[in-house]
Design a protein around this nucleic acid. Structure first.
Length: 453
RNA sequence: GUGGGUAUAGCUCAGUUGGUUAGAGCAUCAGAUUGUGGUUCUGAGGGUCGUGGGUUCGAAUCCCAUUAUCCACCCCA
């Protein structure tokens, strides 16, 4: 197509009706965050690469957008790196900033930097865009908003419990049926150790995480390729099979990990969280899933994920506990836990389910027809009164055909049109037309406010 | 990084085994006795058929390349 204008792939413009719908999602999420006592913060879109790199695994580093240095950045480059076309070596020398990849790592940086200005346990929320140089796909964008809630500086499993409550509340308010999946990195570590592949933790978790996609046989094949023995496989297989209750899932995990210390810890943590949840009314099913892994490498404890039940889509909310993320920035011994809501996917799901409230509109209540200069000037005083009373009102800015002005009001879905022509002006009257029903009535201008209040 | 699909008007798409001035719906603009929109009628503007090459008397149509985009994999919200 011969379009002259375009935006970078994986990014999107939002028309007013879309923006209104997105704000509905943000407002809903924000209101739940506030309900649980979390406070807002903001961090810059760009961070130093030293802050970002190495936190998301190799794949994650590859997907960080880098920002070219300013100035004549090639002047100090070694000829060797330049002539060798060594992109990595070159990039390290000509880029020192990047766009943030998520909100959690910048948050860890924020906590370390402002440790003396915040009170621990620090509960914060943050709703901002993040960028990933990923190849776009369904439900995948290069620029997307994350809505993060984290509490840092507390080991208590009450925090995990609260986050599950928050997830449940958000999706209940949005009217999306979900399932909360729960696992623990310690369990995954324990299993890998018990099966004799402690050094293969990551490929191991990646493999079992694919159970839904490639099936049991696929996972088994992949596990064999990373060196799991037949004996180990035989012990693992029950974990890949569906269990009717969380108790039996945990028991099955116990069968595998046995006396492994880390594994036992993970199981005990999950049991505590599940017990805590018993005291609450959580309408979404909470399911222990030993195959849940999550890619981000900084998680160390509980991992949490929410999936929509009615629409096939990747996870729409995910997170977990990270014990030492601030340690990397020089503040060890501070444990954090948090989850992130994927606003774009929630938007896509609500769109597909036709789940947005019907009355989501932001429009003018009443528009004044512009009949000419004296008439429009006369309207200004009335407009002023309406604005001061908190009623959104506008005057059509140019003297145009009445037909055109009505058509404009109609397209904008403005519910009332006010007319003050020469005659009305003289008599102090105003004619109000209800655009939905088509009927109109004339009243005293002094009664105009009452009509809208 | 790997594999597949698609590319025709602002948008959604037709376009026959290659054939003459490339169409529709929606949208836009203008009109149907100048104070009335949403349903009607009439008309207008708008396309180098993604770009470059090739085959052919002739290409939107067939072939090659290229770019963009979508989908799937990897990975992830």
């Amino acid at each position: 197509m011969a379009t002259q204008t375009a935006i970078p792939k994986g990014t999107r413009d939002f028309l007013p009706h879309e923006s209104i719908r997105r704000n509905f999602i943000f407002d809903t999420i924000r209101s739940v965050f506030r309900l649980y006592g979390y406070q807002p913060i903001e961090t810059p879109a760009i961070e130093n690469l030293s802050t970002l790199l190495g936190k998301y695994g190799e794949e994650g580093d590859r997907l960080i957008f880098r920002i070219l240095n300013s100035g004549n950045f090639l002047s100090n480059i070694k000829d060797k790196d330049y002539t060798n076309r060594n992109s990595n070596a070159l990039a390290a020398q000509i880029c020192e900033k990047g766009l943030r990849y998520d909100l959690t790592v910048p948050f860890a940086r924020f906590v370390v930097q402002h440790r003396n200005e915040i009170t621990f346990p620090f509960k914060r929320y943050q709703i901002q865009p993040v960028w990933r140089a990923d190849r776009p796909q369904k439900g995948r964008y290069r620029e997307f908003f994350q809505c993060d809630v984290d509490v840092i500086g507390s080991d208590s499993l009450l925090n995990e419990t609260e986050l599950i409550q928050i997830i449940n509340d958000v999706f209940t308010r949005l009217n999306i049926r979900i399932q909360v999946l729960l696992n623990n990195r310690k369990i995954l570590t324990g299993i890998a150790q018990a099966l004799g592949v402690p050094d293969k933790l990551i490929p191991f978790t990646v493999a079992i995480d694919k159970i839904e996609k490639i099936g049991k046989q696929g996972v088994i094949a992949e596990l064999k390729s990373i060196g799991l023995t037949d004996e180990g496989l035989a012990r693992l297989v029950p974990l890949l099979e569906f269990q009717s209750t969380n108790q039996s899932t945990l028991a099955a995990i116990e069968q595998v990990t046995g006396s492994n210390e880390i594994g036992k810890q993970g199981i005990s943590e999950l049991r505590t969280i599940l017990e805590n949840l018993h005291s609450l009314t959580i309408s979404s099913p909470v399911v222990v899933s030993p195959s849940l892994a999550r890619g981000l490498s900084y998680y160390t404890g509980a991992i949490i994920e929410a999936k929509a039940l009615d629409v096939p889509m990747g996870s729409i909310c995910g997170g977990g506990r990270y014990d030492d993320l601030t340690g990397i920035f020089g503040l060890p011994g501070v444990s954090g836990v948090g989850v992130s809501f994927g606003a774009e996917r929630i938007y896509d799901i609500l769109n597909e389910l036709d789940g947005f409230p019907a009355n989501l509109t932001e429009t003018t209540q009443v528009m004044f027809i512009n009949f000419g200069e004296p008439e429009s000037r006369h309207c200004l005083a009335l407009l002023d009164k309406l604005h001061k009373a908190g009623i959104s009102a506008e005057l059509y800015p140019v003297i145009a055909k009445i037909k055109k002005q009505f058509a404009y009001a109609n397209t904008r879905k403005i519910p009332f049109v006010a007319m003050i022509g020469a005659e009305e002006m003289q008599k102090g009257l105003v004619t109000i037309k209800n655009m939905q029903h088509g009927d109109q009535k004339t009243l005293n201008q002094t009664d105009l406010l009452k009509h809208f209040t």
